[in-house]
Design a binder for these strands. Structure first.
Length: 587
RNA sequence: GACCCCGUAGCUCAGCAGGAUAGAGCAACAGAUUCCUAAUCUGUAGGUCACAGGUUCAAAUCCUGUCGGGGUCGCCA
């Protein structure tokens, strides 16, 4: 199906072309002045100027030209030369019917589907996730869903941070606590036990313990670095421990992600590409890209056109170790070889912009992937009211697990207060609370423009009124509920006839889905879709408050409104599912 | 110091491929429930779009500068 904006744009573009103008002047968009018109075209001012014509005269000519189109009721010339377009009720009815019948609820498909890899989440083994991880997880997961919805072939990879100093900390701290473990015996090289020697609680305790010691004692830090080097060199016991740490951590991570409805196709990590690094380094040396500088192997990725200083890409550091430059580039090698992507998107904190610039340049220079096929989808930091990265009152980080728990508790409390779900069973109440909490958290993050920092406000994340996830659930559940009642009463939906202003507004809202998705996709900005879904829910709520639907006496109007509700619900659920939000049947 | 991002209502933020009277949510105030879920709806009030220049028929939006806030700048990731 084609949305009205696209249809009208074509009509106006043809009109401009017929008068010998460039078609771009014919671009039509939703009206800024809904009381005057449904759509507007502002091209006459610019087009007239290019010919020395009077804008209003040209506008009148264009208005005359488009008269034949059956979606257009009338076109008015206003102000200096605006064209105000009002569409027919029949056209709106058609659009609503089309949304109702469309299995994508009016959302389209990208012109050219691609195979896209999303690198997001980026959780670290043993380090608990904090609020910053919420952003990568939720934005990345939503973009994956959005791209899939529009037809792209998507693979989401968690890209675990399992190769750094934290592994050394864990190993050395475990060694201090349990020196007799088989993993530390130099005379033993496997096979090692299947059962992990630690629990997630152990990891949660060992890491901060070691980290604190290392900060205070350089020698202790040195020991961890040595352990990392040994592990990277292939120490069998350490490797076996690494495997255990990863497995134990991933199990725990999955719980937090599942709460948020975040899913990954791959759980690969830095350690998975370690074995590719030597070959990659050889290749870089052969190509003359890697050079020895200050004891380290680097790639000079700077360009003359650079306005800023571009530090070198660090392949191997002066101690002979590899850092995240090497693992990230090796990950590109791995992905290109195994998945053959058209594009790779990295959903990572904006502060890593320079790092990715370097990785992309290096990957391009190494002939792995063209620089313009790789994008850093950066996001802003989650700040406190002081403008600094958010800290709890105690000054610590807010763990994601704690945030999840707080949202859930608020949801449960609120369900009790509102007297909702009173007659539901325990299980259903718990499920509803979980869905409400997820909706609140995801929407509170996704509604922000991705790239800017935002101030974290716990109340906003656990609030259920106004522009929130729960508001959207509420709207969807209301529709489900009234459709259910109508069905029970034997009222069937029928032909849609759009009459009043609130109905018109609602259908115009429905019609904006495709372009919201398209823009959201093009800009990699979930908040555009959030805006759309929210305004759709608002438009429905306004109709709901002002008109009876299932209780309407006139059978035709009732059937029409019921059908309209079905269309709205379909699109609402489609939009929400992209945002990773699921509405219960009742709440 | 260089480079990047930001500055819009009391608060948190949209809008920025220029377009008419700058929009939401929260907070404030006034209303709405004989009937489909009030986690709702309707309305009122609230803005020198940081500041100063420039481009343009038209600037919150583009350009320049200033001020203020945040970030990044070779071996932790």
């Amino acid at each position: 199906m084609m949305d009205l904006v696209t249809h009208l744009s074509k009509v106006f573009e043809q009109a401009f072309e017929a008068e010998g103008f460039e078609s771009r002047w014919g671009a039509v968009r939703r009206s800024d002045r809904p009381e005057l018109a449904d759509f507007q075209c502002n091209g006459c001012m610019g087009a007239a100027k290019s010919r020395g014509l009077v804008p209003r005269d040209l506008a009148a000519m264009i208005a005359e030209k488009v008269q034949g189109d059956d979606a257009i009721e009338r076109v008015d010339v206003a102000g200096p030369g605006f064209l105000n377009i009002k569409v027919t009720s029949a056209a709106l009815s058609r659009q609503a019917e089309a949304v109702r019948a469309d299995d994508k609820a009016g959302g389209g498909t990208v012109a050219k589907p691609e195979k896209v890899i999303f690198d997001f989440g980026g959780p670290n083994v043993a380090k608990p996730m904090h609020v910053g991880h919420l952003r990568s997880a939720v934005i990345g997961d939503t973009l994956c869903r959005l791209f899939r919805f529009l037809g792209d072939d998507v693979t989401g990879d968690a890209h675990l941070g399992d190769w750094g100093l934290q592994m050394g900390h864990l190993i050395t701290e475990l060694l201090a606590e349990q020196p007799d473990l088989i993993y530390f015996r130099p005379d033993f090289s496997g096979p090692y036990p299947e059962e992990p020697p630690v629990t997630i609680e152990d990891l949660g305790r060992l890491y901060p313990q070691a980290s604190a010691k290392a900060k205070a004692d350089p020698a202790r830090n040195e020991a961890s670095q040595l352990a990392v080097a040994e592990m990277q060199a292939g120490h069998p016991g350490y490797r076996a421990l690494l495997r255990h740490f990863i497995n134990v951590s991933v199990e725990a991570l999955k719980i937090d992600y599942a709460f948020l409805g975040v899913e990954f196709d791959l759980w690969k990590g830095e350690s998975d590409v370690d074995q590719l690094i030597p070959g990659m380094v050889e290749d870089l040396k052969e190509k003359g890209l890697a050079k020895l500088d200050d004891g380290a192997w680097i790639i000079d990725v700077a360009r003359e056109s650079d306005k800023k200083e571009m530090p070198p890409f660090m392949v191997i550091n002066s101690r002979g170790g590899t850092g995240y430059h090497a693992t990230d580039l090796a990950t590109v090698v791995d992905r290109v070889e195994t998945l053959h992507p058209d594009r790779m998107l990295y959903v990572v904190d904006q502060r890593q912009a320079l790092h990715f610039e370097q990785v992309f340049r290096a990957a391009d220079m190494a002939g792995l992937m063209a620089e313009d096929r790789m994008e850093h989808i950066g996001f802003g930091t989650v700040n406190g009211t002081d403008g600094k990265p958010f800290k709890t009152r105690e000054g610590g980080i807010l763990r994601l697990a704690d945030l999840n728990r707080m949202a859930l508790e608020e949801a449960e409390k609120r369900i009790g207060e509102a007297g909702l779900s009173g007659d539901f069973g325990e299980e259903e109440r718990a499920r509803i609370a979980a869905l409400v909490a997820r909706a609140a958290l995801r929407f509170a993050d996704l509604m922000n423009v991705r790239t800017t920092n935002y101030v974290f406000d716990l109340e906003r994340f656990t609030s259920f009124e106004g522009k929130t996830g729960p508001y959207l659930l509420y709207a969807a559940v209301r529709i489900k509920s009234l459709l259910r009642r109508a069905k029970e009463a034997g009222h069937a939906p029928g032909k849609i006839r759009i009459e009043g202003d609130t109905e018109r507004a609602l259908v115009l809202g429905l019609d904006g889905f495709a372009s919201a998705l398209e823009q959201s996709h093009a800009k990699r900005q979930p908040h555009i879709l959030c805006e759309h879904v929210y305004s759709l829910a608002q438009a429905f709520s306004a109709l709901y408050a002002a008109n009876p639907i299932a209780n309407e006496d006139d059978a035709d109007i009732r059937a029409s409104r019921l059908a309209l509700c079905e269309a709205v619900l379909k699109q609402l659920e489609a939009g929400l599912s992209i945002l990773g939000i699921e509405a219960p049947e009742r709440m």
